[in-house]
Write a protein that binds this DNA or RNA. Structure first.
Lengths: 182, 182
DNA sequence: CTTGTTTTTGAGTATACGCTCTATTTTGAG
DNA sequence: CTCAAAATAGAGCGTATACTCAAAAACAAG
């Protein structure tokens, strides 16, 4: 494992390279050779730092999944507004990771057991947080709030989806309308 | 090219096999060997019917894209309800194709120029059809109706997206709420 | 049955991929 | 400065993949 500075720097370059490739050419195009080439690293160094190519990819996707969360530690405190804003910020501010996030969800790498489980549990967490936030602001049954949360989250995901097709799409503006209709 | 019956049947088996694989194991897992195995065909026969592996895949994805449209010929006649119902029917009735559709949109095969263009133009068509339908039912400026259509479509895509994660998700029910809020 | 066409077979080819291994250089604590 | 640990280079390996091709079998019209 990396302990000296050069190793850590190399590790970073590899992660950056992989992130870039995943977003640009997809899982398929993210070959080891491409990663190495872009990171200016030879295979020997790579395998001194990572177990496998899969490990890097899963690491990057894992980061993408986590990046969706505003403040993973603070629970039971966030407002609906905060949660929504955090997600919008993620979509517009980190489009690269957002794309990987969506790709993963839609089947890109859900064949990987570990990742699939991680993704689903993350999704569930997000849903319950949103549900709780809604209940704190409105008097609704748990069931109603949950339905509300699902609808809102679906709307947001749809906006992110639309942005994939049209980079100029006004996600924030549409999200505002989405919130206004609740 | 296929001219006798056996050839046509083989062609169908290959398309079915590819469709199944794309939905189950994704683009990555849809190898030629897997296609051949499932279709009970040897490589020679395959290349007697198709130019390449890519051709089959693009054919299948193309079918998925077309399948989203309710009645591609009838233009300027459909109602918002019809368009929405058709899409919901597509999502719930043909989940296999729906998944491929979403995968394609989110980047699965958008590296392919032809397919990317086809997908975008299809998306645009769908959006303007929905926009027109809205204007026929409500007095809105073109701009407003377009925004309305984008929001509605995003919502529907979000529901489809959610269904990928949770197969039991009540798409139709939530879509109803979506429509009720307009 | 004959004959030209279509379909099928499956061994074989080229290539790209992930990964290993050994030798060499670099690093930094004592 | 010394030296063990860490980092790097890069040739090379095994495998999986998409695809080819020549020959054989199945097909259908006359």
């Amino acid at each position: 494992m990396a302990r000296y500075l050069p190793g850590l720097q190399t590790r970073d370059r590899i992660l950056e390279s992989t992130t870039w490739l995943l977003a640009r050419v997809g899982l398929d195009g993210t070959t080891l050779a491409a990663i190495l080439d872009r990171a200016k690293v030879r295979s020997g160094s790579f395998y001194n730092l990572f177990e496998s190519k899969d490990e890097v990819i899963l690491t990057v996707i894992g980061e993408a999944i986590n990046a969706v969360d505003p403040h993973p530690d603070g629970e039971g405190k966030d407002t609906v507004r905060e949660l929504v804003d955090a997600y919008i910020e993620f979509i517009t501010g980190q489009p690269t990771l957002a794309q990987i996030y969506l790709q993963t969800a839609v089947g890109g790498a859900l064949n990987d057991e570990r990742l699939a489980h991680r993704f689903l549990s993350h999704h569930e967490t997000r849903l319950t947080r949103l549900t709780d936030a809604i209940r704190r602001e409105q008097k609704l049954t748990k069931r109603q709030a949950r339905a509300e949360a699902e609808l809102l989250l679906a709307g947001l995901n749809g906006l992110a989806f639309h942005r994939m097709l049209d980079p100029d799409f006004d996600v924030a503006g549409r999200a505002e309308e989405l919130l206004a209709r609740r």
